[in-house]
């Protein structure tokens, strides 16, 4: 597959991800027989992510959200089920070809090493490195810089190019990581908690950049978030997970429903309409009404 050296997704009529009967458990969870379903982190998931949509994955802690992203990025292999990426079975693709199509931005990155912002963004070009005797050190080429430049412009980090990553604010860092993901020239962008630990301003920055990327590059975006309100505002569809299974998937207006959330999170919630957009907005009820509901709240 040839891909132009630029940060734009290739339009395809096939769904970005088609997940069928997906089950997965970590090998370290031993001592239980494989038939024991509770050992599974992902348990018979079925869903489809269409080309060019923003899908938010929400669910309580330990519901398997991050594991799902790792499965979709082929960092781990499922025990059962199939994942199709634009029609191709994920297991039949080479690592390089997956890396050229799917960018994965995890949460736990280390900034202890003094890489510059440009170093960081150019790392996104790793799947496009040449192989050969004289290129064994892996220097970037002209087009790698061109793509990195475009990606950095998209996320407004051009002016930081020479700064050390450790000296940046959390919001700037997140934008740099987004640029690195875009430098991969992917068709699908997968983000694990892109707005965690960011203040409101920077949350807004990241979300606007995501929307811009989505609108300009027709990028498919899959993001995991604890922030239901943010997901409701910015996602086309929301996938709610509980114990490794799909509870429901659909537009925010349909799935952000008090009954669904109470069932999934095990606590009473209030859902009203956002003042600007009219999209559903979630808040926790007051102490009194929670006691009245006799359901213990758990964040």
């Amino acid at each position: 597959m040839n891909q132009p050296a630029s940060v734009s997704a290739v339009v395809s009529p096939l769904p970005a991800f088609e997940v069928r009967q997906l089950s997965f458990r970590y090998d370290s969870v031993r001592g239980r027989s494989s038939s024991d379903r509770s050992a599974c982190v992902i348990n018979g998931m079925e869903f489809t992510v269409r080309q060019g949509e923003i899908v938010g994955v929400i669910g309580p802690n330990g519901s398997g959200k991050s594991s799902l992203l790792k499965l979709l990025a082929r960092l781990v292999r499922p025990q059962e089920g199939t994942i199709r990426l634009f029609g191709d079975e994920l297991g039949s693709l080479t690592r390089e070809s997956i890396s050229r199509q799917v960018a994965y931005m995890p949460q736990d990155l280390s900034f202890d090493f003094p890489f510059s912002v440009l170093d960081m963004v150019l790392m996104g070009r790793f799947p496009y490195r040449r192989s050969g005797l004289w290129s064994f050190v892996g220097w970037e080429r002209q087009e790698d810089f061109a793509v990195a430049e475009e990606a950095m412009a998209q996320t407004d980090v051009m002016h930081l190019a020479n700064r050390m990553i450790a000296t940046l604010s959390a919001g700037e860092r997140q934008r740099v990581l987004l640029a690195r993901a875009l430098a991969q020239a992917p068709r699908v962008l997968m983000l694990d908690e892109p707005t965690a630990h960011l203040d409101l301003n920077h949350q807004l920055d990241v979300c606007r950049i995501l929307q811009r990327i989505h609108a300009q590059l027709q990028m498919t975006v899959l993001l995991v978030s604890h922030d239901i309100n943010l997901a409701s505002q910015y996602c086309d569809r929301i996938l709610i997970m509980k114990q490794g299974a799909v509870v429901c998937i659909g537009p925010p207006q349909e799935v952000i429903h008090p009954r669904v959330l109470t069932e999934v999170y095990g606590c009473q919630v209030l859902v009203d309409a956002h003042l600007d957009t009219g999209l559903p907005r979630v808040s926790l009820p007051s102490q009194e009404s929670r006691r009245a509901g006799a359901v213990s709240a758990k964040s």
Binding site: L75, S110, F115
Partner: peptide
Amino acid sequence: RESQALNLLAVGEDAARSLG
């Protein structure tokens, strides 16, 4: 030969593996 791979690993193993 592995120096660029080491750059990526120094930042994060999962991210490095997702980049190939």
